[in-house]
């Protein structure tokens, strides 16, 4: 029983601006003061500079799926803490705290949805659950939603946001990279489209497995995307990193993503890509046999030039 109680509202440091933070928010990009409700209506993109605020799973569900169409799968999966890992804190406690904080069992939500009336399999990672790290449950849920995509012949759309592998699950976390990629190998051979959407930040083992394996890799403007984290690189090479390094636009220039897509156009872009790759409503050209491994790797789009942000 505590004798003293913290005041309900935490004290704010003196130099913070005097705005009610539940109504207004300052843009991290341009410093503009934005009306929170307006910002939400704009899908959390600053109307002044185009800065993309980080959004949660629920927001991305609304962004991508037709209203009310999403049905979640595999909500019961939980980590088994196979190594009984303890550092300064027990992994089991970290999991419990993360579940309490996010209301989710682990760092990805999966399910079925409609996207412009097209049935899809959908997975959205939750960065607020232990940094969106990939352990057994994230790997297993992505494997299952991939198999669902295979069985029901639905394109898979996956929104990544992750710090990488979850080291508290040791070698199992590393092997989730192989596991998710193995399911994508089967989808690749079956000709089921996979659209990978990379949001801020996507790094480590998630980038080095499914996130880079899209038939189209789409990145949000300004998103940090890479394998090694910038701090690790700086420590290794003892140099400062160039401006814009590992940002979405940098990856576009270096040929690692197909397009940098404004969040407000994400749904439409994904829908168009899926129609190009997967939907056949005219007599058109005959579709090649699905066994042929010579499927086009990605829909390149007209040009990489109309980048926003």
């Amino acid at each position: 029983m505590a004798w003293f109680r913290k005041p309900k509202k935490p004290l704010k440091s003196g130099d913070r601006r005097d705005l009610p933070s539940d109504v207004f928010v300052k843009c991290e990009g341009c410093g503009e003061i934005l009306y929170r409700e307006k910002l939400a209506q704009n899908l959390h993109v600053c109307p002044a500079c185009g800065h993309h605020f980080r959004v949660g799973v629920a927001d991305y569900l609304r962004i991508l799926s037709d209203e009310g169409s999403f049905v979640e799968t595999e909500t019961a999966l939980r980590s088994a803490d196979p190594l009984e890992f303890t550092d300064l804190k027990g992994y089991a406690q970290r999991l419990e705290a993360a579940e309490k904080k996010t209301g989710r069992g682990d760092a990805v939500v999966t399910g079925r949805a409609l996207l412009e009336e097209q049935p899809i399999a959908l997975a959205i990672m939750d960065f607020s659950f232990i940094g969106g790290s990939m352990g057994s449950v994230v790997g297993e849920k992505i494997a299952r939603v991939g198999r669902l995509a295979l069985e029901e012949e639905r394109p898979l759309v996956l929104v990544s946001a992750s710090g990488g592998a979850r080291m508290m699950e040791g070698i199992y976390s590393l092997m989730q990279m192989a596991k998710t990629s193995a399911v994508l190998a089967r989808m690749h051979e079956a000709g089921i489209p996979f659209i990978s959407i990379l949001t801020h930040p996507t790094t480590g083992g998630v980038t080095a497995s499914f996130a880079m394996l899209g038939d189209a890799n789409l990145a949000e403007p300004g998103a940090l995307i890479g394998f090694a984290g910038p701090r690790v690189i700086e420590e290794t090479i003892k140099q400062e990193l160039p401006e814009g390094f590992q940002r979405a636009e940098f990856l576009l220039t270096h040929g690692m993503v197909d397009r940098v897509v404004d969040r407000r156009e994400m749904k439409e872009t994904v829908a168009r890509l899926i129609r190009h790759m997967f939907v056949h409503d005219g007599p058109g050209f005959a579709r090649g046999s699905p066994e042929s491994s010579a499927l086009p790797a990605a829909a390149p789009g007209e040009s990489g030039k109309d980048v926003r942000g």
Binding site: S181, F210, A211, M212, A228, I233, I237, Q239, H254, M256
Partner: peptide, 18 residues
């Protein structure tokens, strides 16, 4: 963990091998 390795897409290279 170097600049060139990131620029030339080591994440993609590893992923593709998997």
């Amino acid at each position: 963990p170097g600049i060139g390795a990131e620029k030339r897409g080591q994440a993609e290279a590893i992923a593709m091998n998997l």
